[in-house]
């Protein structure tokens, strides 16, 4: 439903533009105060050289109109009329990027704890990541959303320096990071609207999901040894025992201990540290990471499932509650 409404909104936008171009010159009736006799450069995609350049840089399909690209660069803080801003497009883009990122993460690491999953999705498609992506694409920002700025610039009303970004919505302004991320989301939504679902998925995979995310560094366990004990009890493994793999300089200023944590005869994880406690705790942390970062060999995404329907390769019982 959302897609349909959005598509009609985009069509409405272009129709309105063509009316500007063709009929205003010949009309004899007095113009309504809201209608301008000429389109200002900030709303005239044809007057910008930046838009075709961005279109070419992103290798967008010719069916992706320059008008949508121009609209994606207008933040709601720059224009009150939602028909001229990226508001709807960025909402769709947010849904799409969030869906594809979480689907990818859930299928790749089905045991990921919820907190880490949210952090990982945020790291892929959060404001910070998408704003960085927008800068890499070469999107530049206008100093202020005036009528004479180039339509190829990101137009938004900048939050005054020193103001709390949480108050941005209330004062009708946005930070550069937020505006840039929303523009990137809107551009991605444009791919979905004009080129289709497959193209949007490929675009997201190539631009966002192809980035290296170190999920193994996103963990922070408060009670790792206790959590590992709970895990072993839950899964029916023998209780964990820390065993010394190697050590050097025990009586020196800089000892190093390498400790492995075992369940019965099976090694679960290994850690090293400057004290026995550190090595033991790090071993438990690595064992827990080994559990949570399990990745099945065959990964089928729900969005790629054919007519036969999606069948999960692996269903996890959930994270360990301590």
């Amino acid at each position: 439903m959302k897609t349909l409404r959005l598509a009609s909104a985009v069509r409405g936008f272009s129709r309105r533009n063509t009316r500007f171009n063709s009929t205003i010159a010949v009309t004899s009736e007095p113009l309504a105060p809201t209608i301008l006799s000429t389109i200002p450069p900030s709303r005239n995609p044809a007057a910008s050289a930046k838009l075709p350049a961005l279109h070419a840089r992103l290798a967008l399909h010719p069916s992706y109109p320059i008008q949508t690209l121009a609209r994606a660069l207008v933040d709601p803080t720059a224009d009150k009329d939602a028909r001229f801003t990226n508001q709807n497009l960025s909402t769709l883009g947010n849904t799409l990027t969030g869906y594809y990122a979480s689907e990818f993460l859930l299928v790749t690491y089905p045991r990921l704890p919820t907190d880490v999953l949210y952090a990982a999705v945020g790291a892929f498609v959060g404001n910070k990541a998408l704003a960085a992506l927008g800068r890499e694409w070469g999107i530049e920002t206008a100093f202020s959303p005036a009528a004479d700025v180039d339509a190829g610039l990101l137009q938004y009303k900048h939050l005054k320096p020193g103001m709390d970004p949480k108050l941005a919505n209330r004062v009708g302004a946005a930070t550069q990071e937020h505006a840039m991320a929303e523009a990137v989301r809107a551009i991605i939504a444009g791919v979905h609207v004009h080129e289709g679902q497959k193209a949007a998925k490929q675009f997201i995979r190539q631009h966002i999901l192809s980035r290296k995310l170190e999920v193994e560094k996103m963990f922070d366990f408060s009670q790792p040894t206790r959590e590992l004990s709970r895990l072993c009890a839950r899964e029916g493994f023998e209780a964990p025992v820390a065993r010394m793999h190697a050590e050097t300089g025990r009586r020196s200023h800089h000892p190093v201990f390498v400790v492995g944590v075992y369940s019965g005869k099976k090694l679960m994880g290994e850690g090293h540290g400057g004290s026995l406690d550190e090595a033991r705790i790090r071993a438990a942390v690595n064992a827990l990471k080994g559990w949570y970062l399990y990745s099945p060999l065959e990964k089928e995404l729900p969005s790629s499932a054919g007519k036969k329907g999606f069948k999960a390769q692996f269903i996890d019982v959930g994270e360990v509650i301590v």
Binding site: E216, F237, S263, K266, L267, M268, G269, N286, A287, K289, G290, W291, L293, Y294, S295
Partner: peptide, 8 residues
């Protein structure tokens, strides 16, 4: 930790 131990 990306290499899952056999027990897991």
């Amino acid at each position: 930790p990306m290499m899952t131990p056999e027990i897991f």
